[in-house]
């Protein structure tokens, strides 16, 4: 037992060491690749004053890790500044994005889980709705955007709608699958004990299907977070996607890299939250 534990310890320790090595190697080569200045061209000083550093000093257009770190520090220390409607701190932008994702996602949960139950419990509905689901599922969420803008007539609700429409399918399909594949014996036992339909759904089917449902929800939150960035780049205004677009507009790769990092971390946190929730409902067979 102790030997096994020790082995596990050394394994995770060794993994951490390798992770850090990869990171250091990556940052080091990044730094080397971007630090070199090219040949300095001879320029009229008056002309040089009007040009950027890339043109005058042959500085790489790609920022180095130190530069990215410095801006990241600036964002972390001042995340909630508000300089008007088009320039808000990273924290505020993230709050907007997360707000939209949560709203769209909750709407999807409200629709997908009851509907999934219905499909899973009824062969007829399952077959009848199947063609619609199969056609709607593979549509790229952003393809909905022009239609949403045109019909909903509000860019904020359109973004929420796009989150909804793209996160509803994995949950729906997983719920239906989970409900449909509850073991026949359990249902038969419930029937023998004369458990009512409503009680059966909540005390037998729901706990049995919960792990599958949560897997669907976990896939959905990942998709929702992927989509929000693209949707906000399209409609603009607020959110982390808008931040990326605004900094792209300024060709500020440093800030774009920062945003990429933050998007990744938030996505990971959302995913881990649902992974934890999934662990709570798993049961040994």
């Amino acid at each position: 037992m102790t030997i096994q534990k020790a082995n596990a310890m050394t394994l995770s320790f060794r993994a951490a060491v390798v992770s850090i090595l990869i990171l250091v190697l990556f940052l080091g080569s990044w730094h080397l690749a971007t630090s070199g200045t090219g040949t300095v061209q001879q320029m009229d000083p008056e002309y040089a004053k009007l040009m950027g550093l890339t043109a005058t000093q042959g500085k790489s257009a790609m920022p180095g890790p130190l530069q990215v770190g410095a801006t990241l520090w600036k964002h972390i220390t001042n995340p909630f500044y508000d300089n008007g409607p088009n320039d808000k701190g990273l924290g505020i932008q993230l709050a907007y994005s997360i707000g939209r994702v949560v709203l769209g996602y909750l709407l999807a949960v409200i629709v997908a889980i009851p509907l999934g139950f219905l499909i899973g419990m009824s062969q007829l509905m399952s077959r009848a709705l199947d063609p619609f689901i199969q056609v709607l599922k593979p549509i790229s969420p952003l393809a909905w955007m022009p239609l949403a803008l045109y019909t909903i007539k509000d860019s904020n609700y359109s973004a929420i709608f796009v989150i909804f429409i793209c996160s509803v399918w994995p949950m729906l399909i997983n719920t239906a699958f989970g409900v449909a594949s509850v073991r026949k014996e359990w249902l038969n036992v419930a029937r023998t004990l004369e458990v009512g339909a409503f009680k059966r759904a909540f005390t037998v089917i729901l706990p049995a299907a919960a792990p599958t449902i949560l897997t669907g929800m976990r896939i959905s939150i990942g998709i929702a977070w992927l989509v929000i960035v693209a949707a906000e780049m399209l409609v603009g205004g607020t959110g982390i996607g808008y931040f990326v677009w605004n900094e792209w507009n300024n060709l500020s790769i440093t800030n774009v890299i920062n945003a990429i990092l933050v998007i990744g971390i938030v996505g990971m946190i959302l995913d881990q939250l649902l992974a934890r929730a999934a662990k709570l409902v798993t049961y040994p067979e």
């Binding site: 399209l234 603009g236 205004g237």
Partner: peptide, 9 residues
């Protein structure tokens, strides 16, 4: 004054 991503928008 609100910055916008493109003319179609």
């Amino acid at each position: 004054v609100i910055k916008t991503a493109g003319w179609a928008v």
